[in-house]
Design a protein around this nucleic acid. Structure first.
Length: 844
DNA sequence: TTCTATTGGCTTTTT
DNA sequence: GCCAATAGAA
């Protein structure tokens, strides 16, 4: 073990202890102590010699991957097809930079889109380097920005305790503004405005810059600008930033204060960005600012301020821009709707002249059949660089296709197939079901619950979006950031304390009239002349918050309490938990459990981050994403949207709802480039599968409680027919139950009539789906009502009748209480597992 | 003020 | 077919 000098934080230079890592990191200190990156350093790794134990970083990499790991220069673009091992390349590249002593860990900034990707990268770099990984910034765009903004809050004109508003919070604020301005009469909705503002902020526009280019004679435009202004003002007043502000404010900060930017430009010498195709303009600018060279006079300033600059300077006294590595695949760009600009990656070479480009096309994930399907689909997108994924692992199983009569029938097929796979030894955790819209989960969940299939929905209504969690969090936010009016209003009458909207308005106008904060107005409620009961309630709440704030005050002689202690105090004193527990609404029981879960989470947080405070906890919660809480070790099938599936992989993948109107989605049709983006989405879904891929659709789809006819997706015919084995093709599904006359359908030309290769005529049975009549004869019709069989007892040998599957014999009963499962051999429908409590069955 | 009943509006994807 | 917002009654 030895002590190395490391120019760690931009504001101070602390020595750092480097331990011998398990990988045998050589703890040899360089007396000069400056492996500072940048030009002038010898390229390449010192012959793998930096790696004890002889296992070179390059072992097991193909030539292109090696090149991507070894290349040294100002800019590198790695075009990485799906499953081509890009995370491996990135982590090895980072490990190489550090292992060869070209860079200190603290000089590395690796950016990903999700916390999960960041965690995985951190873990893998850690495995390669051991403890030496400490000090690196491996984080998402958003958390990197939060970190910078909190550190530089004063410069940015913010409180370092600023709150982060999620989209629901923003919409709440907008809703109030729209109501106050009566903008709803002009057709403004909170969601619509929120979208537009978000788009503008992603383009680094604000209300003023937008107003400059707007047509001011248009009342709609004028109103929008007014809403935008008010919104900005209110967030400022509440010391709050929305998601888009985090990026934009950081860029503004860097542009306004070159010396502040220089701190980070000096520190981060190697910047790596994952999923570059999904960057929007703000994110692009953030990276652009960070890689900007530092001018000599600012370098001199830094030097005088005691920052370590000498070894970084070039002949002119400037510090050259950091080296930038970006990884991406324009075929996997699926966030254009959120402002992602594919040009960022397409024009990278023009943007960073002299950039090196490495192409990774060998796929290590999927079988050739899956890749062929993916290639075939994506090749229909013109204006793309041709790129063909290939693999050495062989064809593998065919893609399985299935057309259900309804969404429930489709779900039943999936449940059955999953059980089959499981019986063959595929673990549940290696199976995933993808869909385009969250609404599709309903049918899947209904069937999965009945089939007693262990599953979990990734994303969807997230834990932290639940009302009761937001309530509890609002208490914490109100303590951390007293300026946050939104949080205060939220908890004002939760739990019910008799403070209605009338009182709320009174408080707000009192605050405005006297130029005090809402919180102060609450403290002064006594002088408002309201009823004693209401006044008392307000004062009690204000006192509670003040007491909680005191618990966190570093000046408090009683010592500083932890986040969990404060939350526990707030929950008890506010009686929030007590009220939920005592409620007669059965759902409140779950809500109470959720709040208790939150409390448990704060305890874990405190344990894992002993030095972190309330603000750190709130930040972490604000930035967790859907895919982040994905627990790989859990033995459950994962359900998620195609969007959250990006970056993940599973042995067996079910792509559901491959129908017109769903994929491509109705809404995308009107947008320019919409259908192409939807195709990429389909491509992303296909390429998640390692061994088995299932494509399923339904002939009718319930939507808004009405069943509508669904047509096979146009993308389906782009897959060569011989790659798919149809268990039930759209044509077969259609001809079920005899030959009824077929309705001519608009999409006829797409299917069957086109001469496909080989099995072309097989593909959809040659004909198109008719408009199916909602008949009860369909298999697996599921009634929406939740059945309750009460304490129906079954045991092996019993015969039962199932609404859909007919009669069968119970082979075995497993599980306990409400989770008892009957394993039934049906006479005609085969073997099924059923959850006894709710399955539509009766004993005979 | 709070609880209940009814309506209306809605669904694309998310850091 | 669900949720949230609204209106009306206690």
């Amino acid at each position: 073990m030895s002590t190395l000098f490391d120019p760690d934080e931009p504001t101070d230079s602390r020595p750092m202890i480097v331990h011998d890592g398990p990988g045998g990191f050589p703890a040899v200190s360089t007396p000069s102590g400056t492996p500072a990156g940048g030009p002038g350093l010898p390229g390449g790794l010192p012959g793998g010699g930096a790696w004890a134990g002889g296992d070179s970083l390059l072992d097991g990499l193909n030539p292109e991957q090696r090149e991507a790991v070894e290349y040294r220069g100002p800019a590198l673009l790695i075009v990485a097809g799906a499953g081509s091992g890009k995370t491996r390349v990135l982590t090895h590249r980072i490990a190489g930079l550090i292992g060869s002593r070209e860079a200190w860990p603290s000089q590395i900034l690796a950016i990903t889109f999700t916390n999960k990707a960041a965690a995985e990268m951190r873990e893998r770099v850690g495995a390669l380097l051991g403890q030496a990984a400490t000090g690196m910034w491996i984080s998402t765009f958003h958390s990197a920005c939060v970190r910078i903004l909190r550190a530089e809050a004063e410069r940015a004109g913010l409180s370092s305790t600023f709150t982060i508003y999620d989209s629901a919070d923003s919409r709440n604020v907008l809703k109030r503004i729209i109501k106050e301005l009566s903008a709803d009469t002009l057709g403004f909705t909170a969601a619509g405005v929120s979208n537009k503002i978000s788009k503008l902020k992603n383009e680094l526009a604000d209300a003023d810059s937008y107003a400059r280019n707007a047509n001011l004679s248009d009342p709609q435009e004028l109103m929008f600008i007014e809403i935008f202004r008010q919104y900005t003002r209110r967030l400022r007043a509440a010391q709050a930033l929305d998601f888009d502000d985090l990026l934009a404010e950081t860029v503004y900060l860097f542009r306004a204060f070159p010396a502040t930017a220089a701190l980070y430009q000096r520190r981060f010498r190697h910047i790596l960005v994952d999923e570059y195709q999904d960057t929007n303009h703000a994110q692009y600018s953030f990276i652009k600012e960070l890689t900007r060279p530092i001018e000599p006079h600012i370098v001199a300033e830094l030097g005088t301020a005691g920052h370590h600059v000498r070894s970084l300077q070039d002949a002119s006294g400037a510090i050259p821009g950091a080296s930038l590595t970006v990884v991406g695949d324009s075929d996997q760009s699926i966030y254009a709707f959120r402002g992602a600009d594919i040009r960022n990656i397409v024009e990278f070479e023009r943007d960073y002249p002299g950039a090196k480009v490495v192409l990774l096309e060998q796929n290590y994930r999927s079988t050739q059949n899956i890749l062929s399907a993916a290639n075939a689909v994506i090749s229909n997108n013109f204006d793309r660089k041709d790129k063909k994924l290939w693999t050495a692992v062989g064809d593998g199983a065919k893609i399985i296709g299935y057309t259900g009569y309804s969404g429930h029938d489709e779900a039943q097929f999936i449940a059955d197939e999953i059980e089959k796979l499981h019986a063959e030894g595929v673990a549940y955790r290696d199976i995933a079901v993808f869909y385009r819209t969250n609404a599709q989960t309903r049918a899947l969940e209904e069937i999965f619950v009945r089939a007693a299939l262990p599953y979990r929905v990734v994303g969807g209504t997230k834990f932290y979006e639940r009302a009761e969690i937001k309530d509890a969090m609002a208490y914490l936010i109100a303590v951390a950031n007293p300026a946050d009016e939104l949080a205060l209003r939220r908890i004002l009458n939760t739990p019910k304390r008799g403070i209605g909207p009338a009182t709320e308005t009174q408080l707000a106008s009192f605050a405005e009239a006297n130029g005090i904060s809402f919180r102060q107005a609450m403290r002064d409620a006594g002088s408002l002349g309201m009823g004693p009961k209401v006044t008392g309630a307000i004062l009690k709440l204000a006192k509670l918050l003040d007491e909680a704030a005191l618990m966190l005050d570093p000046e408090n002689p009683a010592g500083v309490s932890s986040v969990s202690e404060v939350l526990g105090f707030l929950l008890t004193e506010s009686t929030l938990l007590e009220v939920l527990r005592g409620s007669r609404d059965p759902q409140d029981e779950t809500r109470a459990e959720n709040v208790e879960e939150l409390l448990a989470q704060t305890k874990d947080f405190v344990k894992e981050n002993p030095d972190a405070g309330l603000i750190d906890f709130l930040t972490q919660v604000s930035l967790v994403a859907a895919a982040d809480d994905l627990d790989d070790s859990s033995g459950t099938v994962s359900l998620m949207t195609l969007h959250t599936a990006k970056g993940l992989e599973y042995d067996s993948v079910f792509l559901t709802g491959i129908e017109e109107g769903l994929l491509p989605h109705q809404m995308s049709a009107s947008e320019p480039g919409g259908p192409a983006e939807e195709r990429r989405l389909f491509y992303v879904g296909i390429t998640r599968a390692r061994k088995r891929l299932y494509l399923s659709l339904a002939m009718t789809r319930a939507q808004f409680g009405e069943t509508n006819v669904a047509m096979p997706s146009r993308y389906l015919q782009e897959i060569p027919g011989d790659l798919i084995e149809w268990r039930q093709s759209p044509g077969m599904a259609n001809s079920r139950g005899g030959t009824q006359p077929r309705a001519l359908n608009a999409r006829r030309d797409g299917f069957g009539s086109r001469g496909g290769s080989g099995s072309g005529s097989e593909r959809f049975g040659g004909e198109l789906p008719p408009a199916p009549k909602p008949k009860t004869e369909w298999a697996n019709r599921v009634t929406a009502q939740v059945r309750d069989n009460g304490d129906l007892t079954l045991e092996a040998g019993d015969r039962i009748r199932h609404v859909d599957f007919g009669e069968g014999r119970v082979n075995q009963v497993t599980g306990e209480g409400t989770k008892r499962i009957a394993h039934v051999q049906f006479d005609t429908a085969g073997a099924k597992k059923l959850l006894i409590k709710i399955a539509p069955i009766e004993k005979i």
